[in-house]
């Protein structure tokens, strides 16, 4: 069985005013994610992707359908803590999720709450900070760090709980290009070297192309999914649903419209240059 199993989940936020039409924020989503997979979820604002993410560690429970994490149903209260140890959540704004005044104390917050032995906490905090390349900053105050550094500390705080999966909801939206790069390479490293499952929600297509699988959401439903190559080939479909494709894909798509014979849609600079060079010969 998959590590994450989302089965026909529906969820709607309760409207305070009566008589309002309630639409499902998540509307019949089924999705399986294997241990060790790197999945990117894209979709426009309000498509339900953040709501779906909050179902993955029992912050929200489905109105109907089921979410199973490693076989455990999130709706069963006794499972809640076990699930939150397995699935960590990183949010958009780094300032909203750091709690302590020293970096290493912040990272220790999770394992302390789980009642982990002090010597083990020390070991986990050091390992987590090394994994995100922030060990040299362990004695710093979080507020003096850059956005990218803060997000990496937030990720370290999750790693110290030793989860099997990290879910990130637009973790790079507030970062500059180099901060984004730092966070994304950290995630790729954790995924490849420690086999941690990563579910990355993002508006940046250049991040989504790095995933094993891209899931596109629209109006609470899954619109399409597949490898980045498959998904970003559907240029028209994505544009219609307020999404973007990498500039390389857009260029080749336009040239194909004029009759250029290229089967593959390139996602990176290198692929695009190689394809165009080939075409010129």
């Amino acid at each position: 069985m998959s590590f994450i199993s989302i089965q026909d989940v529906c969820f709607s936020y309760e409207e305070i005013e009566e008589g309002k039409h309630v639409t499902n924020a998540v509307d019949g989503v089924s999705l399986e994610v294997e241990q060790g997979e790197f999945v990117a979820i894209i979709g426009h604002n309000g498509c339900g992707k953040s709501t779906l993410a909050k179902h993955l560690n029992a912050l929200l429970l489905p109105d109907s359908g089921r979410v199973l994490i490693d076989g455990d149903d999130t709706a069963v209260e006794d499972n809640t803590y076990a699930i939150r140890e397995k699935v960590g959540l990183v949010l958009q704004n780094p300032d909203n999720q750091l709690v302590a005044s020293i970096v290493e104390e912040d990272v220790a917050f999770g394992p302390e709450n789980l009642g982990v032995e002090p010597s083990e906490i020390r070991r986990r905090v050091d390992a987590a900070l090394r994994a995100v390349d922030m060990y040299d900053y362990r004695g710093h105050a979080p507020y003096r760090l850059s956005g990218g550094q803060k997000q990496r500390v937030a990720i370290a705080g999750i790693l110290a709980i030793q989860p099997q999966c990290i879910v990130l909801d637009e973790p790079t939206a507030m970062l500059d290009p180099s901060g984004r790069q730092e966070v994304i390479s950290t995630l790729l490293k954790l995924n490849r070297t420690q086999n941690i499952t990563v579910v990355l929600i993002t508006h940046f297509m250049d991040e989504a192309v790095l995933a094993d699988r891209v899931v596109v959401m629209d109006s609470g439903k899954i619109l399409t999914q597949g490898t980045p190559g498959d998904v970003f080939s559907q240029v028209e479909l994505l544009k219609k649903h307020r999404l973007d494709v990498p500039q390389s894909a857009e260029l080749i798509h336009k040239l194909r419209g004029c009759g250029l014979q290229i089967d593959k849609i390139p996602l990176t600079q290198e692929d695009c240059v190689a394809l165009l060079e080939e075409a010129m010969r």
Binding site: D176, P177, Q247, S248, Q269, L276
Partner: peptide, 28 residues
């Protein structure tokens, strides 16, 4: 610590490889 747009980089690469495309292309 900054980057140029992907499309600018693609066109620069093509130029470097001897294709006759203009320098400093900014948009698709």
């Amino acid at each position: 610590g900054l980057q140029v747009p992907q499309i600018t980089r693609i066109m620069q690469d093509l130029r470097r490889r001897g294709l006759d495309v203009p320098e400093g292309v900014l948009t698709v």
